[in-house]
Amino acid sequence: MARDFRSYIFRKTVYLAITILLILAFNFILFRIMPGDPARAVIPKGASDEVIAMLRDKWGLDEPYLSQFVTYLVNIFQGDLGTSFTVRVNYPVTGIIGPALANTLVLVGTGTALAVLAGVMLGRLAAWRRGTVTDRVASGFFLIFYCMPTFLFALILLSLFTKYIPDWPSRGAYGEDYRYLDLWGKIGDRAYHTLLPLGALVVEEIAAFAIITRSALIDVMTEEYMVTAVAKGMRSKDILHSHAMPNAMLPVVTVVAMYVGWVLSGSIMIEVIFSYPGLGKLTWDAVWGEDYPVLQAAFMLETVAVLIANYSADLLLFKLDPRVKI
């Protein structure tokens, strides 16, 4: 068993490395085939040809692609993501992305945690009460929120809150005085500002997780061992806890990991609508600024985050389900 687990981890890690390499290559190629001359884009207000030539040289834009790729990899592993073209002119990308990443982690991290907790709880409730009025009403709500595009829901929430609650903040991850607050003040300020975007982000995810949990549980309940359990005269609560839930959690864990990507995507819309200064809004700014270094870095981070989530889910699955191979 132990050796099995080790080889499993090894295998998964190799896959992870391959996929990350694939992503880096993809990232590299994608942003090389983008329209426009990056050197042109870095020069603020008409600079002379010499300056442009100098910058081309500095960015290594005239070298062959392969050596550019190697430089790119080396730079990334040294933590150098280049400098921003237009989002914050000439500012190192790492410096821009740092705070944005932190903000997004707060939003997406709490969002996912909350969504998983609430979603699984609600899904369990609905599945357990399958076919009753509770289930129907709950499923109806899940469905509506699941089908509601995140941006639409966010817009509705925003206009309602700003209209009817006079002091409710409509933008940002924290208030304007954030930097002058003490630690608790900062945390409180953040919580206060994050509540609304979080709500907008989380409701859809809760609905999604609830639907998944519900169907997974119902699947499990059709298994014969459940009938056996009932026949043995086990209490339904015990059946739920010791038989149904652990088995139902397997697909849920897989899907949750895959959903991290979805939540990240959702957070882009939320961040744009709430002017929340996170990775999503940064991606957004970089798209319109045609700021390839920033876009590249943001894209890479987002992808790698999802990859790592999946990797952890795979490991978790192995622990949860002894049958898992590959």
Binding site: D177, D182, G185, G188
Partner: peptide
């Protein structure tokens, strides 16, 4: 967190003073 945070905000704001807030659309480019 919320309750403590609220207190924190209050403490800082007490020394706040007066502020003019100007709303703008187009960002500063540099």
């Amino acid at each position: 967190l919320l309750s403590l945070g609220g207190a924190g905000v209050r403490v800082a704001e007490a020394a706040g003073g007066t502020t003019l807030r100007i709303g703008l659309i187009e960002p500063i480019d540099s």
